[in-house]
Design a protein around this nucleic acid. Sequence first.
DNA 1: GTCTATAACTCGATAGAC
DNA 2: GTCTATCGAGTTATAGAC
Lengths: 190, 190
Amino acid sequence: MSSPRPRDVLLAKAVGYYAEHGVRDTSLRTLATSIGTSQRMLHYHFGSREDLLAAVIEIVVADQIAALDRLFAEVDDPFEAGRRNWEAAAASAQTFGPLFFELASHAMHGRPYAAGLGEVVVARHVAAFRRAFATVTDSGHAEVLARLTLAVGQGVLFQLLLDGDRPAADAAVDELTEMVRTRIESANVR
Amino acid sequence: MSSPRPRDVLLAKAVGYYAEHGVRDTSLRTLATSIGTSQRMLHYHFGSREDLLAAVIEIVVADQIAALDRLFAEVDDPFEAGRRNWEAAAASAQTFGPLFFELASHAMHGRPYAAGLGEVVVARHVAAFRRAFATVTDSGHAEVLARLTLAVGQGVLFQLLLDGDRPAADAAVDELTEMVRTRIESANVR
DNA sequence: GTCTATAACTCGATAGAC
DNA sequence: GTCTATCGAGTTATAGAC
């Protein structure tokens, strides 16, 4: 049992607070007192506010990569992977969803510290799902299906966070899964 | 030719500036000088900063509703509607996309002034596409297909804004369209 | 590593003349 | 409607003792 470095403890707490209250409207003062430290310690451990944000994104990216690796270490079937991927996203939607889209909007505006998030959310996820789909269809088709599967997950998550209709979200994901399944089956029969 | 009210001119310019630079890191000072007015005028015409943001969202919502009404006044076919909807989204992606997701994240955090955006982006769009799909399939299925079609549009837009790969985005949208088409055809034959 | 104190600055909002 | 000037609160960041 190695005791975790204080920096990492603070970082985890900061992610939790940002997830609940948003990044924009959280000052270092508010964050510090809310997670039981001082503004001075945030500067000491992370540097500037933007450096802290970079650290937050870095750990979010690392978590996403770890989850992705874990998923495909256990699962080969792209449909099962898609199902688990969506389940995990929906389960953490309430807590992490808004932060996810908020940080993504930083990446869209070209903030350098957020570039890694854009990369893992699209390229890295697409690559992983492409490999899985390549076991059941040709590689060009696998690329498209990978993108589509992830787009549905992200789009449905987006809707879920705006209207809270979980059954409708599940139904949309299931509908896509079934359509892709029959499409691949009919292609294999052909 | 009625000369437009100065308030509306300022509002349009504000939307443009926010779209390019983001809402978060734009102060009233910066916004005012950038669009050729003074901080005083922003307060005079809109009230507080949050009131201005509410006005921005209000006009974005109005534009979305107008575009939706225009679309379904011209088109009944859900596939053609989906195609045009995606084309319009992709065309304005570079300019309006980041603002769209940024304002949506405000709605996700429960900001009251942003509630209307969440409603129009999900419920209102789903309702319009549901009606279109109801002309080619049963109403329960139409609801699911409407949500799925919109989710793909939003998810693919999300990816496009993060990696800029327009051909890949188009391919994913086309793939879904074709899958839905064959699904409905096979159901009608059955 | 942690604390208190404060510097230096920017923010939203307002005052009041014109 | 538009201007300049400014208030008071809040912000990031730093200083320096312990």
